[in-house]
Design a protein around this nucleic acid. Structure first.
Length: 949
RNA sequence: GGGCUCGUAGCUCAGCCGGCUAGAGCGUUCGCCUGAUAAGCGAGAGGUCGGAGGUUCGAGUCCUCCCGGGCCCA
C-alpha cells in the first residue's frame, strides 16, 4: 500500500485571533480600561449631539453597602435599553443617582460613633453621614461601571448635593403655594427605639405574641336606664358593661370612646364573675365565642334574645375603667358608630384611642374627640396618666394594665394571640401609633390652581402613562385610591430640613416666598447651613417678614424631610435641571417602586406641574431562590452579586439578566447563572468560527452578489434577515429574554448545527479564491457584522472585543456601541424560498435519522461514508429538492452523494454505504476518486484545487 | 387579612382570539467525528401544563374554589 499523503496543508483551515477562551474576568477590565481612556460615555454623547434624545431617568439606589442582584438586574436592564436606543441613533444621556440622606446611614454612623455621638452636635454628625454616603457612592459607581454600564459617573446626582436640595425646596415651595402642605397632630408610626416617626417603607412586619384581652366598661346610670328601655338589661341588674377587646392594653389609658357598627346587632351576655352577676353588651354574632374565651360552659352563661342595632347604642355613655377624669378638652367616653368595625374577632365593640390608631383617629375626628396621646418620645407615659402608670414604658406596661383590670374585676378574659405586627426596620423593636405634630402633604385638598386633589390628579393621569407590564397601572391605582396623606417630616438630623420658622407664640412661617428664599440659600451653602446659620442669614436680610414675625423672635424647624420626598423631586432636580423634556421617556425600577418612587415622584410632579414625570414606567420583579422562595442571608439562599461577577465575569451576569423574564420572579442561584456560561461559549464560538473563516476575505473586492450565491447562503441570509426583524421587535418591546432566545436559537440551530457545519467542505476544500467559497464568506461576513451588533447591548464587552477583531466593519465607529443596529430591509434577500427550505430541512432531518440507523448498525462511522437516495411521488418535495440539486443536498447532509428519484410511492429516504473510494483530501466517497491518474487518491474537485495551486 | 401578580419538561422560555399525538434551546443519556478540538455533529429519553371542580363537541388556554410563591399594604 502506498503511504497516505497529508493534504492538510492544502486546505483553507480556519484562522483567527479571536480566542476561543473568553477569560472574561481578565479581558473585561481591559476593555473597560480602554473605554475609560477614550471617555466612551462622553464620546458617544458627543457623536449624538444633535440626535433626538431618549431619556431614561435613573432612580437613586440607597448609598449604602455593596451592590446586590437587585442592583445588577436594574442597572443591566437600564443599560440594555440605553445601549439599544443609542444604536437606533438616539442621544441617551444617563445620569446615575444616589439617595444619600436618611435613617440607615444615620443609624450606621451613630453606631460607629457610639458614646462619642453624645458629645457631637448635629453638624458634626451630618458631616460623618455625608462622608459615609460619599464612600458608598464611589464604591457603587465602580461596581456599576464594572458591569459595563455606561453612565455619567463623574457627574452623578446626589440627593445631598446643594443643587439637588435646592430643587427639592423649589418643588416644595410650589406645593406650599398650592395650599396642600399642612402641619397637624396625627397618630403615626413611631419607633421608640429610634425616637422618630417612620414611613410606611420603614416598617417590617413580624409575627409576635400579644395579650388579647376582653374588658368590661361600666355603663353610667343614664345609659343603664336607656338600656333597660332597649331591653338589654333590667333595673335590678347592677353590673352592666360594654365589653371591648384589644391586643394593645397599653392604649386603654388613652381610650376616649367605644365604636359600634351601626348595622351590626348587639345583645346581652349574662354570666357570673366570682358570684357577681354581670351583663355585657356584645355583638350577637360574637356572644358565644366570647363566653368560650373565658372558658364558660353551657349553662354558665346566657345570651339574651334581644337584638339591638349599633346605631341605637350611639352616644350611650360609659365610665373609663381606671381613668377618673377625662384628661382632654373635649367630651369623651361614649359609644360612636364606625363602619370599619367587624365581627371577625373581638366583641363587635371597638376601643377607640384617637391618639394611638389610624382608624381610631379618623373615627374620633368625626365625633369631635381629642387626639390624646399621653406618651413621650421614648415610649414612657407622661404626667397626665393615673399614678400607677406614670413613667412606665408602653412596651412593658401591658401586664400592669391587665393586673389593674383584674383587680377592678373588669377583666373578662385574656389569652395570647400570635399576629403580624409592624416593627422598626432599624431598631427591630415593635412600632407604636402615637400622635405627634407632623408635616403633611394632603392628597385630598384641592391643589389651588388645578381645582383637583393630588389623588384625583394622579388617578386621572395614570392612563397617560404606558405601564410595562400593563398591570402596573392597576396596582398603582389601588395604592392611590387608598393612600393617606403623606407624612413628610422626620425627627432626625441626616436630611434636608423642612424650611419652616416659628415665633415664640408658636406661629409658623412657611410661605412659597420663604421656601424659595431658603432654597436659594441652601442651593449655595447646602443644608448644613440650616444648622449653623441664623434665620436672617438663611432667608436673607431683604426678606420681608410677615406680620407677627421679627428677626429677634424666630427659630428654625427641627424636622427634616422624608427621603422619599427628596427622591420624588428628582424629575425637577435632575431632569429639568439638565434641560430634558419632562415627562421623560422612561422610569425603570423594581415593582416595589409602584408604592415608592413612581408614586412619590408622581405626587410632587402633579402638584407642581400638573403632569406625571414620566411617559412610561417599566418594572421588574425580584430574585428568588431555585425553589422560588425569597432570598435572604439568614436563610442561606442568598446570591452574592459581587462573588458571581468575580467568578464568571459581567457579560455572563448580563446574559443571565437578558435570559429571564424579568417581569416575574427570577429564580437565581450560582448554578443557574453558571449555566449561562454554556450559552456564552456557544455564542462566542460561533463568532469565532465566523471570524476564522473570513480571515482571508476582503468584502470590498471579493464579495459575491446575492443572486450569484449558493442557495444555502441565501437561506442563511434569509434566516438572518428574520432574526434582525424579530430581535429588533423584541428590543423595542423591552422583551430581552426574547432577544436572548432568538439569538441563541439562531446561533445554535441555524448557524452551528446547520449552516456552519455544512459550510466546512466548501470553505476548507474548495479553491481559496473560488466563487463558491467567496459566496459563503460574503454571507458569513454580513452575519458576523450584524450579529455582533445585535448582541452588543447585552454582551457589551464581548461585542466590543469582537467588533475590534472585525477587519472590515459595516460602519466606521470607534466602538460597537456607537454603531447602528442592522436593518432587516438592508439584507438583500427575499423570503420566497423559505417554504421550500422548510421542506428541505424536514427531509434532511429524516435523512440524518436514517444515517443514524446506518451508524448504529456499524456500517458507517462518518456521514461522509454514506450516500442517500430520496424517492418520492410528492411533487412539492421534489420541487424543493430540485431547487438546491443533488450535490447541494448531499453537502447539506454532509454525505458524499445524493440522488433524487421520482417514484409512485410515498417519500422514501434510503441511506447506504458509498461504493466509492475516499478522497484523502475532502474525505468524501466519490466516483471520481481513483480515476485521475496523477492524483489517484483524490476526487476531481480536490485534484483540480491541488494541481492548480 | 387585603390589593396586584405568578405557577407549562431538570433549567430558561414558546404556546395568538379555546381546536392535530403540548413545542424550542440548554442540560441529561447513548452514539459519531477528530481539519471549529478544554471544540463540532447526530439520535433518544424527559411534561397527569400546581390541584379540584365547572362551561364547552373540545381547555395549558375561559370561570370558580383550593394549594404554593413574590411584591406592596394592614
Amino acid at each position: 500500500m502506498s503511504e497516505k499523503k497529508n493534504y492538510r496543508k492544502t486546505l483553507n483551515l480556519p484562522k483567527t485571533a479571536f480566542a476561543m477562551k473568553a477569560n472574561l474576568t481578565q479581558r473585561e477590565p481591559q476593555i473597560r480600561k480602554s473605554w475609560e481612556k477614550q471617555k466612551m460615555y462622553d464620546t458617544i454623547r458627543a457623536q449624538r449631539e444633535n440626535a433626538p434624545k431618549y431619556i431614561l431617568h435613573d432612580g437613586p439606589p440607597y448609598a449604602n453597602g455593596d451592590i446586590h442582584m437587585g442592583h445588577v438586574i436594574n442597572k443591566v436592564l437600564k443599560d440594555i435599553v440605553l445601549k439599544y436606543k443609542t444604536m437606533l441613533g438616539y442621544d441617551t444621556p444617563y445620569i446615575p443617582g444616589w439617595d444619600c440622606h436618611g435613617l440607615p446611614i444615620e443609624v450606621k454612623v451613630m453606631a460607629e460613633l457610639g458614646e462619642k455621638a453624645l458629645d457631637m452636635d448635629k453638624l458634626e454628625i451630618r458631616k460623618r453621614c455625608q462622608k459615609y454616603a460619599s464612600k458608598y457612592v464611589k464604591l457603587q459607581s465602580k461596581q456599576f461601571s464594572d458591569l459595563g454600564v455606561f453612565a455619567d459617573y463623574k457627574n452623578p446626582y446626589l440627593t445631598m448635593k446643594p443643587s439637588y436640595e435646592r430643587g427639592i425646596l423649589e418643588v416644595f415651595a410650589e406645593l406650599v403655594e398650592q395650599g396642600i402642605v399642612y402641619k397637624q397632630l396625627k397618630p403615626i408610626h413611631w419607633s421608640i427605639g429610634c425616637e422618630t416617626a417612620l414611613a410606611d417603607a420603614e416598617l417590617e412586619y413580624k409575627d409576635i405574641s400579644s395579650p388579647s384581652i376582653y374588658v368590661n366598661y361600666p355603663v353610667d346610670a343614664d345609659t343603664k336606664a336607656k338600656m333597660c328601655e332597649l331591653g338589654l338589661c333590667n333595673q335590678d341588674e347592677e353590673n352592666v358593661y360594654f365589653m371591648i377587646w384589644t391586643t394593645t392594653p397599653w392604649t386603654l389609658v388613652a381610650n376616649l370612646a367605644v365604636a359600634a357598627h351601626p348595622s351590626i346587632e348587639y345583645t346581652s351576655l349574662r354570666y357570673d364573675i366570682g358570684g357577681k352577676k354581670c351583663v355585657s353588651i356584645v355583638a350577637a354574632q360574637r356572644a358565644e365565642a366570647i363566653a368560650k374565651a373565658r372558658g364558660l360552659e353551657e349553662g354558665q352563661y346566657s345570651i339574651s334574645d334581644v337584638r339591638v342595632r349599633g346605631e341605637e347604642l350611639e352616644k350611650l355613655r360609659y365610665k373609663h375603667p381606671f381613668v377618673e377624669k377625662n384628661p382632654t378638652e373635649n367630651d369623651a367616653y361614649f359609644v360612636i358608630n364606625a363602619l370599619y368595625v367587624t365581627v371577625e374577632d373581638g366583641t363587635g365593640l371597638v376601643h377607640i384611642a384617637p391618639g394611638h390608631g389610624s382608624d381610631d383617629y379618623m373615627a374620633g375626628q368625626s365625633y369631635g374627640l381629642s387626639i390624646y396621646s399621653p406618651v413621650v418620645d421614648n415610649g414612657d407615659y407622661d404626667e397626665t396618666v393615673p399614678e400607677f402608670l406614670k413613667g412606665q414604658n408602653v412596651l412593658k406596661v401591658d401586664p400592669v394594665v391587665i393586673e389593674k383590670l383584674e383587680d377592678l374585676g373588669l377583666l373578662f378574659a385574656r389569652k395570647d394571640i400570635l399576629h403580624s405586627y409592624p416593627h422598626c426596620w432599624r431598631s427591630k423593636m415593635p412600632v407604636i401609633f402615637r400622635a405627634t405634630e407632623q408635616w403633611f402633604i394632603s392628597v385630598d385638598k384641592k391643589v389651588a390652581n388645578r381645582g383637583k386633589s393630588l389623588r384625583e390628579l394622579a388617578l386621572d393621569s395614570t392612563s397617560d402613562v404606558k405601564w410595562i407590564p400593563a398591570w402596573g397601572e392597576k396596582r398603582l391605582r389601588g395604592m392611590l385610591e387608598s393612600r393617606p396623606d403623606w407624612c413628610i417630616s422626620r425627627q432626625r438630623v441626616w436630611g434636608l430640613p423642612i424650611p419652616a420658622f416659628y415665633n415664640s407664640n408658636g406661629d409658623t412661617l412657611l410661605t412659597a416666598e420663604s421656601v424659595r428664599a431658603t432654597a436659594k440659600y441652601i442651593g449655595e451653602k447646602g443644608s448644613n447651613g440650616w444648622f449653623s446659620d441664623s434665620p436672617k442669614e438663611i432667608l436673607g436680610e431683604d426678606f420681608k417678614l410677615p406680620e407677627g414675625f421679627s428677626w429677634d423672635d424666630l427659630h428654625k424647624e427641627e424636622n427634616i424631610f422624608d427621603v422619599w420626598f427628596e427622591s420624588g423631586c428628582s424629575w425637577h432636580s435632575v431632569a429639568k435641571a439638565a434641560g430634558w423634556d419632562v415627562p421623560v421617556d422612561l422610569y425603570l425600577e423594581g415593582s416595589d417602586q409602584h408604592r415608592g418612587w413612581f408614586q412619590l415622584s408622581m405626587l410632587p410632579a402633579l402638584g407642581a406641574t400638573g403632569k406625571p414625570p414620566f411617559k412610561s414606567v417599566l418594572t421588574h420583579g425580584f430574585t428568588v431562590d431555585a425553589k422560588g422562595m425569597k432570598q435572604s442571608k439568614s436563610l442561606g439562599n442568598y446570591v452574592n452579586a459581587q462573588e458571581e461577577i468575580q467568578k464568571y465575569g459581567s457579560d455572563i451576569l448580563r446574559l443571565w439578566v437578558s435570559s429571564v423574564n424579568y417581569q416575574e420572579d427570577m429564580r437565581c442561584n450560582d448554578e443557574i447563572i453558571g449555566r449561562l456560561q454554556d450559552a456564552y461559549r456557544k455564542i462566542r464560538n460561533t463568532l469565532r468560527y465566523l471570524f476564522s473563516n473570513i480571515d482571508d476575505f476582503d468584502p470590498t473586492t471579493q464579495a459575491v452578489a446575492t443572486k450569484d450565491m449558493v442557495e444555502i447562503d441565501r437561506w442563511a441570509l434569509s434566516q438572518y434577515k428574520k432574526l434582525i426583524e424579530h430581535v429588533l421587535a423584541a428590543y423595542e418591546d423591552f422583551a430581552f429574554h426574547k432577544v436572548f432566545s432568538l439569538i441563541y436559537n439562531f446561533v445554535t440551530v441555524d448557524m452551528s448545527n446547520i449552516y456552519m457545519d455544512v459550510l466546512k467542505d466548501r470553505l476548507y476544500c474548495d479553491a481559496k479564491e473560488s466563487q463558491l467559497r467567496r459566496s459563503a464568506q460574503t454571507t458569513m461576513h454580513i452575519i458576523l457584522d450584524g450579529l455582533i451588533r445585535l448582541i452588543s447591548p447585552i454582551l457589551v464587552h464581548t461585542a466590543e472585543e469582537a467588533w475590534g477583531n472585525l477587519k472590515f466593519k459595516s460602519q466606521d465607529v470607534e466602538t460597537v456601541h456607537l454603531a447602528l443596529m442592522p436593518k432587516a430591509d438592508s439584507v438583500d434577500i427575499d423570503s420566497s424560498n423559505d417554504a421550500k427550505w422548510d421542506i428541505i430541512l424536514e427531509i434532511r432531518d429524516e435523512a440524518l435519522r436514517s444515517l443514524e440507523a446506518l451508524r448504529e448498525a456499524k456500517e458507517i462511522a462518518s456521514n461522509q461514508e454514506a450516500m442517500i437516495v430520496v424517492s418520492s411521488n410528492n411533487q412539492e418535495i421534489m420541487e424543493a429538492l430540485e431547487m438546491i440539486g443533488e450535490e447541494q443536498f448531499a453537502s447539506l447532509c454532509i454525505i458524499s452523494e445524493a440522488k433524487f428519484e421520482k417514484s409512485d410511492t410515498d417519500t422514501v429516504i434510503k441511506a447506504s454505504k458509498s461504493p466509492h473510494s475516499k478522497c484523502e483530501r475532502c474525505w468524501n466517497y466519490l466516483p471520481s476518486v481513483g480515476s485521475i491518474s496523477e492524483s489517484p487518491d483524490l476526487c476531481q474537485r480536490c485534484a483540480d484545487v491541488v494541481n492548480c495551486s
